[in-house]
Design a protein around this nucleic acid. Structure first.
Lengths: 103, 103
DNA sequence: TTGATAGGCAACTAAAAGGTTGCATATTGT
DNA sequence: ACAATATGCAACCTTTTAGTTGCCTATCAA
Protein backbone atom coordinates (compact mmCIF):
# COMPACT_ATOMS: atom_id res chain seq x y z
CA UNK A 1 0.00 0.00 0.00
CA UNK A 2 1.56 3.25 -1.17
CA UNK A 3 -0.07 5.27 1.57
CA UNK A 4 2.06 3.48 4.15
CA UNK A 5 5.22 4.85 2.56
CA UNK A 6 3.64 8.25 2.44
CA UNK A 7 2.86 8.29 6.15
CA UNK A 8 6.21 6.78 7.01
CA UNK A 9 7.91 9.53 5.01
CA UNK A 10 5.99 12.19 6.91
CA UNK A 11 6.84 10.57 10.24
CA UNK A 12 10.17 12.26 10.81
CA UNK A 13 10.83 15.76 12.18
CA UNK A 14 13.40 16.74 9.56
CA UNK A 15 11.22 15.60 6.71
CA UNK A 16 8.12 17.23 8.11
CA UNK A 17 10.06 20.48 8.51
CA UNK A 18 11.14 20.20 4.88
CA UNK A 19 7.56 19.72 3.78
CA UNK A 20 6.53 22.82 5.66
CA UNK A 21 9.31 24.82 4.06
CA UNK A 22 8.35 23.55 0.65
CA UNK A 23 4.69 24.34 1.06
CA UNK A 24 5.34 28.04 1.40
CA UNK A 25 8.22 30.43 0.81
CA UNK A 26 10.24 30.69 -2.34
CA UNK A 27 11.32 28.19 -4.93
CA UNK A 28 13.53 25.65 -3.24
CA UNK A 29 16.67 23.76 -4.08
CA UNK A 30 18.19 20.83 -2.19
CA UNK A 31 20.39 23.35 -0.47
CA UNK A 32 17.78 25.84 0.60
CA UNK A 33 15.45 23.17 1.90
CA UNK A 34 18.26 21.52 3.85
CA UNK A 35 19.86 24.49 5.60
CA UNK A 36 19.68 24.88 9.35
CA UNK A 37 18.22 21.45 9.94
CA UNK A 38 20.89 20.45 12.45
CA UNK A 39 22.04 17.58 10.27
CA UNK A 40 24.64 17.43 7.52
CA UNK A 41 23.88 18.08 3.90
CA UNK A 42 24.16 14.38 3.13
CA UNK A 43 21.82 13.53 5.94
CA UNK A 44 19.29 15.98 4.60
CA UNK A 45 19.80 14.61 1.12
CA UNK A 46 18.81 11.15 2.32
CA UNK A 47 15.63 12.54 3.79
CA UNK A 48 14.84 14.24 0.51
CA UNK A 49 15.30 10.97 -1.29
CA UNK A 50 12.82 9.33 1.05
CA UNK A 51 10.31 12.10 0.36
CA UNK A 52 10.94 11.68 -3.36
CA UNK A 53 10.51 7.90 -3.19
CA UNK A 54 7.17 8.46 -1.50
CA UNK A 55 6.30 10.90 -4.30
CA UNK A 56 5.86 13.70 -1.83
CA UNK A 57 8.39 15.81 -3.67
CA UNK A 58 9.91 15.88 -7.13
CA UNK A 59 13.61 16.53 -7.66
CA UNK A 60 14.59 18.15 -10.91
CA UNK A 61 18.20 18.74 -11.84
CA UNK A 62 18.85 22.13 -13.40
CA UNK A 63 22.46 22.89 -14.15
CA UNK A 64 24.40 23.15 -10.94
CA UNK A 65 21.53 22.84 -8.55
CA UNK A 66 18.46 20.68 -8.15
CA UNK A 67 15.03 22.10 -7.58
CA UNK A 68 12.67 20.53 -5.08
CA UNK A 69 8.98 20.78 -5.66
CA UNK A 70 6.17 19.59 -3.42
CA UNK A 71 3.82 17.07 -4.98
CA UNK A 72 0.35 18.10 -4.01
CA UNK A 73 -1.45 15.03 -5.32
CA UNK A 74 0.32 12.73 -2.92
CA UNK A 75 -0.63 14.88 0.04
CA UNK A 76 -4.15 14.66 -1.24
CA UNK A 77 -3.99 10.87 -1.15
CA UNK A 78 -2.90 10.89 2.45
CA UNK A 79 -5.60 13.30 3.43
CA UNK A 80 -8.22 11.25 1.60
CA UNK A 81 -7.09 8.11 3.38
CA UNK A 82 -7.54 9.68 6.80
CA UNK A 83 -10.84 11.19 5.75
CA UNK A 84 -12.06 7.75 4.75
CA UNK A 85 -11.11 6.32 8.14
CA UNK A 86 -13.05 9.09 9.80
CA UNK A 87 -16.03 8.59 7.53
CA UNK A 88 -16.21 4.88 8.33
CA UNK A 89 -15.84 5.59 12.01
CA UNK A 90 -18.71 8.06 11.91
CA UNK A 91 -20.91 5.59 10.09
CA UNK A 92 -20.08 2.97 12.64
CA UNK A 93 -21.01 5.24 15.53
CA UNK A 94 -24.22 6.21 13.79
CA UNK A 95 -25.19 2.57 13.33
CA UNK A 96 -24.47 1.92 16.98
CA UNK A 97 -26.57 4.88 18.04
CA UNK A 98 -29.51 3.67 15.99
CA UNK A 99 -29.17 0.24 17.53
CA UNK A 100 -29.12 1.56 21.09
CA UNK A 101 -32.06 3.85 20.42
CA UNK A 102 -34.03 0.77 19.42
CA UNK A 103 -33.91 0.06 15.66
CA UNK B 1 5.66 18.09 17.37
CA UNK B 2 2.98 15.53 18.13
CA UNK B 3 1.92 15.17 14.53
CA UNK B 4 5.26 13.54 13.73
CA UNK B 5 4.48 10.69 16.09
CA UNK B 6 1.05 10.42 14.57
CA UNK B 7 2.37 10.01 11.04
CA UNK B 8 5.11 7.72 12.19
CA UNK B 9 2.52 5.53 13.87
CA UNK B 10 0.48 5.36 10.68
CA UNK B 11 3.56 4.53 8.63
CA UNK B 12 3.52 0.78 9.13
CA UNK B 13 1.44 -1.81 7.28
CA UNK B 14 0.33 -3.71 10.39
CA UNK B 15 -0.69 -0.58 12.19
CA UNK B 16 -2.48 0.86 9.20
CA UNK B 17 -4.37 -2.40 8.83
CA UNK B 18 -5.36 -2.21 12.46
CA UNK B 19 -6.64 1.32 12.00
CA UNK B 20 -8.76 0.19 9.10
CA UNK B 21 -10.19 -2.64 11.12
CA UNK B 22 -10.93 -0.32 13.99
CA UNK B 23 -12.64 2.25 11.82
CA UNK B 24 -15.35 -0.16 10.80
CA UNK B 25 -16.64 -3.53 11.92
CA UNK B 26 -17.56 -4.46 15.43
CA UNK B 27 -16.25 -3.48 18.82
CA UNK B 28 -12.66 -4.59 19.01
CA UNK B 29 -10.38 -6.11 21.59
CA UNK B 30 -6.62 -6.52 21.43
CA UNK B 31 -7.23 -10.02 20.20
CA UNK B 32 -9.73 -9.27 17.48
CA UNK B 33 -7.72 -6.41 16.08
CA UNK B 34 -4.56 -8.52 16.06
CA UNK B 35 -5.77 -11.75 14.45
CA UNK B 36 -4.54 -12.80 11.04
CA UNK B 37 -1.90 -10.11 10.83
CA UNK B 38 0.91 -12.55 10.12
CA UNK B 39 2.73 -11.57 13.28
CA UNK B 40 2.55 -12.93 16.80
CA UNK B 41 0.18 -11.60 19.42
CA UNK B 42 3.06 -9.89 21.21
CA UNK B 43 4.20 -8.28 18.01
CA UNK B 44 0.73 -6.95 17.41
CA UNK B 45 0.54 -5.79 21.00
CA UNK B 46 3.63 -3.65 20.48
CA UNK B 47 2.04 -2.04 17.46
CA UNK B 48 -1.06 -1.28 19.46
CA UNK B 49 1.06 0.38 22.10
CA UNK B 50 2.62 2.60 19.46
CA UNK B 51 -0.83 3.56 18.21
CA UNK B 52 -1.87 4.24 21.80
CA UNK B 53 1.21 6.37 22.49
CA UNK B 54 0.35 8.42 19.43
CA UNK B 55 -3.19 8.75 20.80
CA UNK B 56 -4.61 7.12 17.72
CA UNK B 57 -6.33 4.48 19.83
CA UNK B 58 -7.37 4.12 23.44
CA UNK B 59 -6.91 0.87 25.32
CA UNK B 60 -9.32 0.15 28.11
CA UNK B 61 -9.01 -2.89 30.33
CA UNK B 62 -12.31 -4.64 31.02
CA UNK B 63 -12.08 -7.82 33.02
CA UNK B 64 -10.31 -10.46 31.00
CA UNK B 65 -9.97 -8.52 27.80
CA UNK B 66 -8.98 -5.05 26.71
CA UNK B 67 -11.06 -2.98 24.35
CA UNK B 68 -9.44 -0.95 21.61
CA UNK B 69 -11.14 2.19 20.43
CA UNK B 70 -10.12 4.49 17.63
CA UNK B 71 -9.48 8.10 18.64
CA UNK B 72 -11.09 10.24 16.01
CA UNK B 73 -9.70 13.55 17.17
CA UNK B 74 -6.13 12.51 16.51
CA UNK B 75 -6.97 11.48 12.98
CA UNK B 76 -8.51 14.89 12.61
CA UNK B 77 -5.25 16.53 13.63
CA UNK B 78 -3.33 14.62 11.00
CA UNK B 79 -5.83 15.48 8.35
CA UNK B 80 -5.79 19.14 9.34
CA UNK B 81 -2.01 19.21 9.15
CA UNK B 82 -2.00 17.90 5.60
CA UNK B 83 -4.82 20.23 4.65
CA UNK B 84 -2.79 23.16 5.90
CA UNK B 85 0.20 22.12 3.80
CA UNK B 86 -2.05 21.96 0.78
CA UNK B 87 -3.62 25.33 1.58
CA UNK B 88 -0.24 27.02 1.81
CA UNK B 89 0.89 25.39 -1.39
CA UNK B 90 -2.18 26.60 -3.21
CA UNK B 91 -1.64 30.14 -1.94
CA UNK B 92 1.94 30.00 -3.06
CA UNK B 93 0.96 28.89 -6.55
CA UNK B 94 -1.66 31.59 -6.72
CA UNK B 95 0.87 34.26 -5.77
CA UNK B 96 3.24 32.95 -8.41
CA UNK B 97 0.52 33.05 -11.03
CA UNK B 98 -0.32 36.65 -10.23
CA UNK B 99 3.34 37.58 -10.48
CA UNK B 100 3.77 35.92 -13.86
CA UNK B 101 0.57 37.49 -15.18
CA UNK B 102 2.07 40.90 -14.34
CA UNK B 103 1.23 42.08 -10.82
C1' DT C 1 -12.06 -26.61 39.87
C1' DT C 2 -9.95 -26.90 35.83
C1' DG C 3 -9.13 -25.84 31.10
C1' DA C 4 -9.34 -22.44 27.77
C1' DT C 5 -9.05 -17.61 26.79
C1' DA C 6 -7.04 -12.82 27.03
C1' DG C 7 -3.43 -10.66 28.25
C1' DG C 8 1.29 -8.81 30.55
C1' DC C 9 6.43 -8.56 30.90
C1' DA C 10 11.27 -9.21 29.68
C1' DA C 11 15.20 -10.72 26.97
C1' DC C 12 16.86 -11.36 22.67
C1' DT C 13 17.85 -10.94 17.46
C1' DA C 14 17.87 -9.16 12.78
C1' DA C 15 17.10 -5.56 9.90
C1' DA C 16 16.25 -0.80 8.89
C1' DA C 17 16.82 4.05 9.84
C1' DG C 18 19.29 8.11 10.81
C1' DG C 19 23.35 10.13 10.60
C1' DT C 20 28.32 10.77 9.69
C1' DT C 21 32.89 11.25 7.08
C1' DG C 22 35.57 11.25 2.96
C1' DC C 23 36.17 12.05 -1.62
C1' DA C 24 34.83 13.09 -6.41
C1' DT C 25 32.41 15.93 -10.13
C1' DA C 26 29.96 19.51 -12.59
C1' DT C 27 28.66 24.35 -12.88
C1' DT C 28 28.94 29.20 -12.07
C1' DG C 29 30.79 33.82 -11.10
C1' DT C 30 34.86 36.76 -11.20
C1' DA D 1 41.60 30.06 -15.34
C1' DC D 2 40.21 29.44 -10.60
C1' DA D 3 37.74 29.47 -6.50
C1' DA D 4 33.45 28.79 -4.66
C1' DT D 5 29.07 26.52 -4.93
C1' DA D 6 25.88 22.61 -5.44
C1' DT D 7 25.72 18.19 -5.64
C1' DG D 8 26.68 12.87 -5.96
C1' DC D 9 28.23 8.31 -4.24
C1' DA D 10 29.83 4.92 -0.97
C1' DA D 11 31.36 3.10 3.37
C1' DC D 12 30.63 3.10 7.88
C1' DC D 13 28.57 3.50 12.64
C1' DT D 14 24.88 3.67 16.13
C1' DT D 15 20.25 3.50 17.54
C1' DT D 16 15.63 2.18 16.77
C1' DT D 17 12.26 -0.84 15.11
C1' DA D 18 9.92 -5.03 14.17
C1' DG D 19 9.49 -9.27 15.47
C1' DT D 20 10.36 -13.42 18.18
C1' DT D 21 10.37 -16.82 22.21
C1' DG D 22 9.51 -17.99 26.87
C1' DC D 23 7.08 -17.66 30.82
C1' DC D 24 3.69 -15.83 34.08
C1' DT D 25 -1.15 -14.01 35.66
C1' DA D 26 -6.03 -13.14 35.67
C1' DT D 27 -10.66 -14.15 34.22
C1' DC D 28 -14.43 -16.76 32.41
C1' DA D 29 -17.18 -20.84 31.36
C1' DA D 30 -18.31 -25.69 31.88
Amino acid sequence: MAVVELFRALGDPSRLEMMQRLSSGEVHTINSVSKGLDITRQGARKHLQILADAHLVVLESKGRDTSVRLERETLEEGRAFIAELERRWDKRLEALRRFVDGE
